[in-house]
């Protein structure tokens, strides 16, 4: 687990130093409203930020700071990177949770219908419907949603954060991209459960099909779904990047993109590390849940 974090941070460091575009020049130019800074100013900046030192030493310096809980400050502002990240977490978390909720809202009914009516028209229709969302590039979907639901129907604000109403469209945009995946999970999980003996038992006891499905099968089918869905949180950031740009949500994805383009190395390094921690933790949590649900599952030596 620690190894992954170290690896990720080393990789980030290396990648940043491979990236063309000098941070000193880029940042000063941006600060000076597009004018190019003098060589002295650039030299001064490098000096101040320790960019002149050998990369391994810079890395060790950085790790030393991080171990003391200091993610450094952004090149652009005095704000500590940790503060920047903490400020941005709510918007992304909100989006991720809401997106997941949308995905589940779409996926659970369609997945059940699919499984119950396997091989019949409702199965095909719901599978198809669930796939439509994932098949649309999400910025396109986002703009279409804005035009239909904001401009034409006047239901939601176009962009921003605050309040449930500004969360709806971004959540749909992000969630519909995941719905197909979750639907697949629900469907296959449901099919599996419906094959189990206890369902047959329930049926043979003469319980109504509906009760069998919703009371017995669904509950069991959802357990693996929910855990696997938990894992997807780690991946949500990729989708969040674009959704946050389209809907002007100040979240982690937008921060990452801005920082990369602006060559704000401390922010990129800090953020990548935090993302990696989140990823590792969710994996760990899911592993634990699995163990709890099904103690028979054994793990190889690779629990991250």
């Amino acid at each position: 687990m620690l190894l992954v974090l170290v690896g990720v941070s080393i990789l980030t460091f290396l990648l940043l130093f491979l990236t063309p575009g000098d941070p000193a020049e880029t940042i000063l130019r941006q600060q000076m409203g597009g004018r190019t800074p003098s060589l002295e100013a650039i030299e001064q900046f490098r000096q101040n930020e320790g960019l002149n030192r050998p990369i391994p030493i810079q890395y060790v310096d950085w790790v030393t700071d991080v171990l003391q809980g200091n993610l450094r400050e952004s090149y652009y502002q005095e704000t500590p990177v940790s503060t920047l990240i903490i400020n941005r977490i709510p918007a992304t978390l909100e989006l991720a949770v809401a997106g997941m909720a949308v995905a589940l809202t779409i996926a659970i009914p369609t997945g059940i219908i699919s499984a119950v009516h396997k091989g019949k028209a409702p199965d095909y229709l719901s599978q198809f419907a669930a796939l439509v969302g994932v098949s649309m590039p999400n910025f396109w979907l986002g703009y279409i949603l804005i035009i239909v639901f904001s401009l034409q129907l006047g239901l939601f604000p176009v962009a921003g954060v605050g309040g449930l109403e500004s969360l709806v469209l971004p959540a749909i945009t992000l969630g519909s991209g995941m719905a197909a995946i979750v639907t697949r999970l629900v469907r296959s999980s449901m099919l599996e459960v419906l094959d189990e003996e206890y369902i047959d038992t329930a049926r043979s006891k003469g319980l109504r099909e509906r009760i069998v499905i919703y009371k017995h099968a669904l509950r069991n089918a959802l357990i693996p779904v929910v855990t696997i869905v938990g894992l997807q949180f780690g991946y949500l950031l990729n989708g969040a990047v674009i959704v946050e740009i389209v809907f002007q949500r100040p979240g982690l994805g937008a921060l990452l993109i801005d920082a990369i383009f602006a060559r704000d190395y401390p922010v990129v390094q800090g953020l990548v590390l935090v993302i990696a921690v989140i990823f590792v933790l969710t994996n760990f949590a899911v592993d634990l849940t699995y163990r709890y649900i099904d103690p028979r599952i054994s793990f190889g030596g690779e629990s991250a």
Binding site: V4, V8, L11, L18, T19, N238, L256, I275, E302
Partner: peptide, 26 residues
Amino acid sequence: DEALMRFVDILLAFPGILLALVIAGI
């Protein structure tokens, strides 16, 4: 196995978008 899978873990924990951006940038 251990080494390769660790490397995979690292890549998986890494925002793909950053990797893609850097590569496209370089």
